[in-house]
Design a protein around this nucleic acid. Structure first.
Lengths: 199, 199, 199, 199
DNA sequence: GATGAATGAGGTTTCATTCAT
DNA sequence: GATGAATGAAACCTCATTCAT
């Protein structure tokens, strides 16, 4: 990693929370220079514009969550555990998420809606990938007999997303971790119910 | 209703969607003048500042939803129906919600977090009231024998809020009504499961 | 006095202090409506514009001072007493002046300098009249033998004005009445010194 | 001196007359950009707000006068000359003062009274220092036998201030230098009269 | 004749971005 | 390549004034 790339990475790391907390338009260049202890020039030397910084920061935030999900999926021994990777990942991370300004997916989808298509697209890509992965896992589980034949992968994907990002949003906003706990418990129950009795 | 009150009401009505779509800081005075076809002076003649316009617009948006919930609760014949009022209300309104920039609660809670305490407070008040009403209803249902004795009102309140506002958020963001449908169905199932078998 | 004239007079009386305290541009229409308990429309019904209100208010303030000077002059028995009318008038009024925002002449001459020629002209007219009256009085006193032949009316007029308006300005600004006292005493000494010994 | 400090100094120098002429609220940002040939952004890059620019401009104006007074005081050979430093300084500067919008002390004390406490405080500090210095000088002169034992330092300080700032105010307003001349002459006489005959 | 809602120009300030050093 | 002073558009807000009712 060259020097320039190191600086870029350091900037991204340090502004990720700022953007997540204040949103794209709420975070000013001054917020970024304060968070990074760099000058405006330094930021513009490493990024084309604020937009690009925000996009990279969002990618960074999403990747941190995605990495934990992937980790959990990779260590799973059955398809149900591969689904459990989602609630498990958030279970492992939710203290970090709540102290970092909330769920970046929820924040981006509500904040950047009409104002910032690029950020929106990035968040939607994550949603799409999540749904596709859940669907594939459910299909695999049905083929192997682990899941009941009428298990609906699309439905489960939507519910996991809704419960988890909705729970994170409300837990952050109310400062009541109970929202996250309830949502994750409910998500786990939904997954469990799909298991065929022979399991 | 005096002329001033009419204008105030008209402004609120016309800017409610703008604020819901763009958020407090994303919506500029110019956005407001374009939406209302009034001048800046006219807006400042009727409101103390942008903050007040935003607060009134949020109240308006919340009230529209609250009104439908209340309506549904009032026409309910049993405690379970009183809980069903929540998903039913969103079922009735979700086309309007999705075409108006999404769920104002979700939008406000993610947008106004650190920037705008007053709007945040308004949204949190709605959340609190929702939870309290659900808890009272569950208690009443347990007393009357309609609900199982171990029904947990707090848990149900949190899940309804999470599913419904999370579903609305994702449906809006993805333009996929399925998120809302799945969330509402799930919410209904959760309510149904609490009914004692004798019912 | 017709009704319209009564309203005009009442407005002038009530805004005189506001203009004296805040200056022409510092006093807003809102300040005027608050001071008069009237609507903007009522003020514009009775005056062409803010400028006219300010001019009338200044005339009112100047006239209150001029009236006391004239009163003192009229009751004077000799030319020296006619000069003493100036410090005497301010002696009689300075509590009122200091509690009303200071000397309107000093305020206008410094405030309205470049911004408001009309108000400036009004204040300068008062200055001119003061100087002319002092000069005439001195001439009369010299003719009658009351004053020394080398008494310089122009000089005395300037000094009286400088001491009195300067003293009022500093007394108001420092909240120290001593400035006014010292200036008036000094003015009186200057006048006394002009008396011929035969008196 | 870094570039920023040079710009700051240049701005202060160029706007000092504008503020002295138009007053704090009368001088608009546009006036400042026109006087400096800089953009609004450049001004806000070098000062926190208009208030700060005004305060620095007033300090600059006061300092120019104070510097000449100090210079005169330092070259004085006796206590009487130390008092004469005040009229002498204004004698040396009054062309500059009158062509620059008048005496900044008089302007500030009447203009900024209720509107701008910080500027008021700056002007009052100068008044206080002037009075204290005069009193100390008089005390020293009395001890050394240069002044009569009943010389009243407080009285003399007030009269010098009143005559000089009042004279400047009227000279500026009437465009008649005579006001300044008479006031300075009178001030000199007051000082001379305190000298003990043995001197 | 009085009202007060609406106007629109102008006020101060902040922002993302550029560019000479 | 980094700096930070300068830009200028756009932000929020206030003002004196007008005019339909």
């Amino acid at each position: 990693m060259g020097k320039a790339e190191k600086t870029r990475a350091a900037i991204i790391e340090q502004v990720a929370e700022v953007f997540n907390r204040k949103g794209y338009s709420g975070a000013s260049l001054q917020d970024l220079t304060e968070a990074t202890q760099l000058t405006k020039g330094a930021i513009y030397g490493n990024f084309a514009d604020k937009q690009e910084v925000a996009a990279e920061a969002l990618k960074y935030n999403i990747d941190r969550i995605a990495a934990v999900i992937v980790e959990n999926r990779n260590s799973a021994r059955c398809e149900a555990d591969r689904l459990m990777a989602y609630p498990n990942a958030y279970h492992a991370m939710y203290k970090w998420i709540l102290s970092n300004g909330g769920c970046p997916i929820a924040n981006t989808l509500t904040d950047a809606d009409d104002t910032n298509p690029q950020l929106n697209r990035l968040a939607l890509l994550f949603v799409k990938k999540w749904r596709r992965d859940v669907e594939k896992t459910v299909e695999a589980g049905k083929k192997s007999g682990e899941f009941l034949p009428d298990t609906n992968g699309s439905e489960i994907g939507k519910l996991l997303l809704t419960l988890i990002s909705g729970g994170a949003m409300l837990a952050k906003a109310t400062q009541d971790h109970g929202f996250m706990d309830s949502a994750l418990t409910q998500a786990e129950q939904i997954i469990s119910k799909q298991k065929s009795k022979s399991q």
